[in-house]
Structure formats: C-alpha cells, structure tokens
C-alpha cells in the first residue's frame, strides 16, 4: 500500500527530472564541459557578456519595481470588486500573456511613435511644450515590459489580497489607525510574502523579454537574452550561447532561492 503510494508520488517527479535533465541541463552541461576545457574562452565569454548581463538585471529590477505599485492597485481593486467585475479584470490580466510579444511591441510602437496615440493626445489636449519622444528611449522598453509583467504580478497578489480577513481591516480601524497606516501595516504586511513572489516573478519574466528593449529602445539596451538568441540563430556559437544561458539561469534562480528562503521563514511562524 505504502509502496504504491510512494511510487505514485515519485513517478511524476522522475518524469519531470528526466524531462529537465534531458531537455535543458544535459545539452547545456555538455557544451559547458567542452568550454571548461578552454578556461580562457569561458572567461572571455563571461567578460564580453557582463555589460549585457548588468543591463538585463538592472532593467528587470527597475521594471518589476515600477510594475509592482500598479499591480497592487489592480489586485486590491479586483478584490473589492463584484464577482462579475473581478472575472472581467482577471481575463484582462491574462490577455497580455496570450498576446504574441511581437504584437505587443508593435502596439507600443503605434502608441509611442511620432504620430502615435500619446503624441496625438498631447497635441489634441494642447499640453505645453513638444510631445515627449518616448520611442527608442529606455522609457519605451520599461513601459512595454511593465505592461507585460504587471498583470502577472497582479494575479499573483490577487489571491493574497482576497485572503485578508475584513475583520482585520475593521479591527485596525477601530484601534484608531488611519487609512494609510491600515493599508501599509495591515494589508501590505499581510500580503508581504506575495509581494516578494510577485516582484521576483516580474523580475524573472523581464529577463526573458529581450526583444522588447531591442525593438523599442535599440542596441544601447541590448540584454543578455538577445545575445543568446544572436549566438544561437545567427552566429551558431553554441558554446557562447550556453555560457550566457547559464549566466541568465543563475541571474533568475538566485532571487527565486532568496524568495523561497524568505517564504520558508514566514511559514515557520
């Protein structure tokens, strides 16, 4: 009995392990092992990719930070909304995920270009000064990436906000706390683990949105993901691509491990 139950739990894990090792870790490992035989080459690839890696991390950190406040606002509003409104809101949050990334990029080009929506509105509303030039600046990439990751972050936060006991809010009110204190200490305090998860998820997703800065900003914001693509598709330099992919993997996994450690600490309460 026990053996079959254990077997039932182990089998899916084993399949997953084989899938991960066979599909990702094994080829990466083989290429890296080949490169390890040439340590100078390994060091050279890491050195050449360091600037792009730094840009990737910085961009992901900034975009996730910018997307977090609107994600909190959306999640909190959906929590308090009626059921039908919440369903529509969740559907709208899922929409950017199912859209092809190139479509999203094209849409933002239409919005931000010289004759685009922003500039047209600026002119129509007779706002002072010239319309801002956003396309092909860092702001364009940040805006579009935040647009993609914000709904995911909101969906992660939604469940946690829904688990806030309304009595807790009322208790804080009865104890004399002002609305901002209630929001920050009681609500955000309660959903803090989900905030960390949402932020890390936003950060990790940003690492993989390498096409957005490339098309909406330009080569001065090339990220590590784009270099991997170039090495695989154009240069066929699989060794360099493997090193860069491993760097990306480490950049993504480290914050996840940190978040898991924090989550474990919270659960031990």
């Amino acid at each position: 009995m026990t053996g079959s139950r254990t077997g039932g739990r182990v089998a899916p894990a084993a399949v997953l392990t084989v899938f991960m090792v066979g599909g990702l870790v094994l080829p990466l490992g083989l290429v890296l092992a080949e490169l390890a035989a040439e340590p100078e080459r390994l060091g050279q690839v890491v050195g050449e990719s360091a600037a792009a890696a730094g840009r990737s991390v910085l961009l992901a950190v900034v975009v996730a930070a910018i997307a977090l406040p609107p994600a909190i606002t959306v999640a909190r509003s959906l929590t308090r909304a009626r059921h039908a409104v919440r369903v529509v809101g969740v559907a709208l949050c899922v929409l950017p995920l199912v859209l092809n990334l190139l479509v999203v990029i094209l849409a933002w080009m239409v919005v931000l270009e010289r004759e685009g929506l922003v500039n047209t509105l600026w002119t129509t509303m007779a706002l002072p000064g010239d319309p801002p030039q956003i396309l092909y600046t860092r702001s364009a990439a940040v805006l579009a990436m935040a647009y993609v990751v914000m709904p995911v972050m909101a969906l992660i936060l939604l469940d946690s906000f829904r688990r806030i006991d309304p009595r807790m809010r009322e208790a804080a009110r009865l104890l004399g706390a002002r609305p901002l204190t209630r929001f920050v200490l009681v609500e955000l305090g309660f959903v803090a683990p989900a905030l960390v998860t949402a932020y890390v998820m936003g950060y990790v997703l940003c690492l993989n949105l390498y096409l957005v800065p490339e098309y909406l900003t330009g080569p001065h914001l090339t990220t590590l993901g784009f270099l991997v693509q170039e090495n695989v598709i154009k240069s066929f330099d699989l060794g360099s691509a493997a090193v860069q992919a491993t760097m990306l993997f480490v950049m993504a996994v480290l914050p996840v491990c940190g978040a898991l450690a924090m989550d474990r600490g919270v659960r031990q309460r």
Binding site: D165, R167, M168, E170, A171, A172, L175, G176, A177, R178, T181, L185, V186, G189, F190, A192, V266, R269
Partner: peptide, 21 residues
C-alpha cells in the same frame, strides 16, 4: 474571530493602537 494581525508578533499587535496614535 479577534482580528489579530497574523503577520505581526504579539507585541506589535498589542502596540498597534499606540502606533496608530
């Protein structure tokens, strides 16, 4: 159901009305 704040230690819970003031 008390409305205690599960993410705060007991001391912080008890001190909350003082913090509010």
């Amino acid at each position: 159901d008390l409305g205690l704040f599960p993410h705060m230690r007991v001391r912080s819970n008890v001190a909350f009305p003082l913090l509010a003031r």
